[in-house]
Design a protein around this nucleic acid. Sequence first.
DNA 1: CTTGACCTTCCCATGTTAGTAAGGTCTACA
DNA 2: TGTAGACCTTACTAACATGGGAAGGTCAAG
Lengths: 133, 133
Amino acid sequence: MMNIGKAAAASGVSAKMIRYYESINLLAAARRTDAGYRAYTDEDVHVLRFIRRARDLGFALADIGELLALWHDQGRASADVKGIALAHVAALERKIAQLQGMADTLRTLAAHCHGDARPDCPILTDLDAGGGR
Amino acid sequence: MMNIGKAAAASGVSAKMIRYYESINLLAAARRTDAGYRAYTDEDVHVLRFIRRARDLGFALADIGELLALWHDQGRASADVKGIALAHVAALERKIAQLQGMADTLRTLAAHCHGDARPDCPILTDLDAGGGR
DNA sequence: CTTGACCTTCCCATGTTAGTAAGGTCTACA
DNA sequence: TGTAGACCTTACTAACATGGGAAGGTCAAG
């Protein structure tokens, strides 16, 4: 059994976030000591690490809730897990394509900007007039 | 002169956002009719369109404030505009690389998941144990 | 004069994380 | 025993940009 600070250090999830995850019911309410301190087991830390890794992969907390449920469900179908993962990959790809489009446009505009003391700049011209996009 | 609804339709910026931009001083406070309605000119719509396009390129409102100031400054140096744009491109590239890493990892894991009724799934195994990442 | 479409301000919610304040608890050391 | 300092508790605030809604005022057309 350890305090929230230890659990945070051991899992890579800040104490702040552990309390938040508990408040939104992503985590079950932790046991408490007589003084009211939250007490965590190694198994709890294991769950926190799971969440941490899922966050690192960009899953939203709602998705992580589903992944946790599947993780705990011995009778799960791997198809369900794969479905969540592939939906997330698709969302990531959409986001990447969107950012890539922005970056491409800006790189092109910047490449044609003198970048000196003169005021004329195709970037502003594009923002001004729309550049035909 | 037009109402906020017209200006919104003409610029692609919602009335809600126009009011918000005004509240954070990204926009100067609009003139008002006797009844207290905001009144916009074609020039105001021009500014709103500028903001809309900058948002489409992913600029944060703070950046847009600087871009607007440069746009209005006839004595600007194009280097300043280019600097903002390239800093944003760099931020976009960092974000893209991050998302790409997530997507790559997930695609690899998902490719090795049967995706059927059986429970075993490398995605969960990775989240469980860290997969050596 | 009424109806419906518009406008106004104000508050709330989103999603995830961090900061801060005011107060209680525990531990180690003098 | 006392106390300092490190920890814990809850609760409120902020960030970012946007949307939703309520309660009420205004305008134009019929």
